[in-house]
Write a protein that binds this DNA or RNA. Structure first.
Length: 125
RNA sequence: CAAGUAGAUUGCCUUAUCGCUGUUCAUGUAAAUGAAUGGAGGAAAGUCCGAACACCAUAGUGCAACAUAGUGGCUAAUAACCACCAGUCGUGAGAUUAGGAAAAGUGCAACAGAAAGUAUGUACAGGUCAUGCUGUAGUGAAACCAGGUAAACUCUAUGUGGUGCAAUGCCAUGUAAACUAGCGCUUGAAGGCGGCACGUUUGAUGCUAGAGGGUAGGCAGCUAAAGUGUAUUGGUAACAAUGCACGCAGAUAAAUGAUAAGGUAUUCCCGUUCUUUUUCAGGAGAUCCUGAAACGAGUUCAGGAAGAACAGAAUUCGGAUUAUAGAUUUACUUAAGCA
RNA sequence: UGGCCCAUGGUGUAACUGGCAACACGUUGGUUUUUGGUACCAAAGAGUCUAGGUUCGAGCCCUAGUGGGCCAA
């Protein structure tokens, strides 16, 4: 699997996002929080993922863009390890709930922990 | 040199790996894959003016409301910009000004003061036949001046129709032209129409409210534009004309990046080279020479450490506003400064 | 994208037409009480979000900004 993250893997449907926040479950590994919902869609990808940073915590657009880029990058590099053996299509939204600007290595380690938690949670049910 | 004034330019670089996005081409039924090429700013920011563009009736009349306010120029247009005049501030280079009208009218002026706008009291002096007739004193920001105040109302002149790309046009998907209450159906509900009136026009399977059902995807608008760079000419200048070259982001839970390594401007630390300053001692005798010490300043070289500010397009332009580490550079000023 | 409103002691509010920034709670000290509370007495605490301007004089008027809140599609 290639380390890609193109338009088809992005969560873009407004309707699906509203459904995700209304019905989805969540796990968190501070400063990240993952909201997920098993669903189906037409494109042949295992998951659609979006990232989000609160305007309340980061007032400047430059800071928000930087954090979202770091989150997308760490998702792109690590998704293959976890999602190749998914049996169900998922919608994900990763939120940044911290209040300080992170470094790349921190985001990567927490992202890995986050998806470890996610896998143990879905294997329970 | 120091202190200062007014501008102008710039505001990280290289390599490797892995990505994102627009366009074009190739392969492919398609999904997709590959290649080439483009991909944030001087403020993209806040949203204070002015326009373009789109729709509402190509936009009516009056009132109201709002904006502007020396003169001339410039511009698509402006409250921006340029030149000049005048006022104020500064030694000066320069800075700054909502800079029309107080003889159309209404209002306002605390305290002090006799009196604050229909004036004229006290004391002293002068003057007169006589009298606030004249001057001075005293209060105050202002005391008779056709006073001040218009960033008080107002008047004058000029200008402004409204809504905004979530405009607007089209395609696709889907539901409920159902239910309840009120108003109305040519004797006119309601809308176009923005604060009001007039006027005009549309108008019945209609309008308003309640409760409820559905959609919330795509395409166009969407980037070639009052465009950018440069040269010449005209103009004091803003700016204009002409030639040549370039073809310059287009995302939409929102691209333009991430990581690693190296480097540059610059800053700091330690050592070092040279110059200078101060102190002490000795010599000469006028303003100097020699030696020692000290820390301060500048500077050369080597090593080490840190190492880029403010900030992210969202229909598009023109201006002004605010934020901004540092670097480069032009012109000019100096009363009191140092050599 | 467009529009509207607010900012005054630590907190919540006043200040009329421009003329000495007021009140309550809180704070500090004292009296009363065995102690604490209550009650009473006294004191401190601000120059009105920032920078300019108009004016003799600005919390109030004007301009620009900063921060906060709200509304519409």
């Amino acid at each position: 699997m290639r380390f890609t993250y193109n338009k088809k893997e992005k969560l873009k449907s407004k309707k699906l996002i509203e459904q995700l926040f209304a019905e989805g479950k969540s796990v968190s590994a501070y400063p990240l929080r993952l909201v997920f919902l098993p669903t189906t869609f037409e494109d042949a990808v295992p998951a659609k993922t979006g990232v989000s940073v609160s305007k309340r915590n980061f007032k400047k657009a430059v800071d928000r863009n930087r954090i979202k880029r770091l989150m997308r990058e760490s998702y792109r590099l690590n998704k293959a390890i976890y999602f190749n053996n998914l049996t169900q299509q998922y919608a994900f939204m990763i939120l940044y709930i911290g209040k300080d600007k992170p470094k790349f290595i921190e985001v990567v380690t927490r992202m890995k922990l986050l998806f470890d938690k996610f896998q143990s949670k879905i294997s329970e049910t």
